[in-house]
Design a protein around this nucleic acid. Sequence first.
DNA 1: TCGGCTATTTTTGCATACAAAAAATGATTG
DNA 2: CAATCATTTTTTGTATGCAAAAATAGCCGA
Lengths: 235, 235
Amino acid sequence: MLTTSIANPSNVTSLAERRLLHETVVDQLRDLIVQGELAPETKLNERVLAERLGTSRTPLREAIKFLASEGLVELLPNRGAVVAALKPEKMQEVFVVLGALEALAGDLACRNASEADIADIRALHYHMLAHHARGELAHYFRYNQQIHQRIIDCAGNATLAQAWRAMNAHVKRARYLANLSGERWDKAVKEHEEMIEALTRRDGAKLQMLLRDHLANKLVMVMEALQARKTEVVR
Amino acid sequence: MLTTSIANPSNVTSLAERRLLHETVVDQLRDLIVQGELAPETKLNERVLAERLGTSRTPLREAIKFLASEGLVELLPNRGAVVAALKPEKMQEVFVVLGALEALAGDLACRNASEADIADIRALHYHMLAHHARGELAHYFRYNQQIHQRIIDCAGNATLAQAWRAMNAHVKRARYLANLSGERWDKAVKEHEEMIEALTRRDGAKLQMLLRDHLANKLVMVMEALQARKTEVVR
DNA sequence: TCGGCTATTTTTGCATACAAAAAATGATTG
DNA sequence: CAATCATTTTTTGTATGCAAAAATAGCCGA
């Protein structure tokens, strides 16, 4: 699942908690950044943030260092940390790398996925189609993400999966800005259709290519969204 | 010392670069792990390690969290952290991902590298040849690493470079175990020869292929080294 | 001797205290 | 009035303190 239930605002003390505070803080902070609640280039005030997350500065700082390694925050010596900027150039870089990783994953998935795996992915695909038909963007994104995630998982390479997740965090962040136009959305769905087909036929070379193209198109959408945001700010 | 001498051109972190204890500790700890001074699966005792690095537990813990995100250490809830294990399966995974990243970098480098860049890389190559001729393994490795690093840098994608560095850390760690046999070593050098040639001709497709093969061969060597270490322990 | 229980020690996880650096404020002077 | 510098305030970076969990040692009984 994408987000851990954030429900728990206050105490962690009452129940016997297996999970470490550090991890929950990492997840909470990552969600705040990915979902845009902490906008790009926002300064992270440790005292304020720690209070907001119901913890002290120590675990928060550890979480910040962890996310810095993922690239979601940037460390400024003696000046704390800021949410990583969301620059077009950075997005281009991320998409290039993500393209290579997904292409690899697609190829591996075609070899390693079980029939049950493929059936699952196809099921997710139909859910996604349903939400597309109803114009339910948020739900569409959710299933879209799950499909990509499952393809990665089917590659059977945990290291690849982790690298992908880190890159994908940046993309997800941009997604929250994107307003899919009807025609672009239809095109994306069509591409998914072909991807599912290639996966079913276990045509690794084809899937690889489709994933690359799909990502290239996503990049175009994200860049447009970033451009729109920029002019909006200026206006 | 390897990492410090690299005098890095492409920035891993942000613009403002000033010395901070945290960064120092991260680099020191990473070196200890990569160079095998802290062996795989070693428990990291915070008090002892902090004293060894001349600092307190707080910055050390932050460094540990940072490296955990890079995958060099593993966090055990309520039981601290250990140096990541060096398992054959993990190595296979890393090499597959690294193959995709280097292939991508090779392709991009063929397009983006300046003539001066290529000349630099060729110069490094000849240094490497010299050390190979003299059987100076450590120096050979150093130039070998620099060549790969420079190819990555020439791709002109800082995000790619960072992902590569993280993966490469795992490989470097395994390197310190590897004793190159004469014939394998000769083969590796020959592969480098071809790579330099492809880069000079800016034949991206060819370089991509060569890098993949080169890495596949490296994997074989690493696996043999791991196997040897295992039997050695058993014996 | 061995296994399991409790008590002690060690170690981790989190909070807080303190010092140094940066930012904000304000006063003085040209 | 602006600019610069000194002073206060805030924020970060590091060390330390303390409670809880884990590891270890010691003890007893079968």
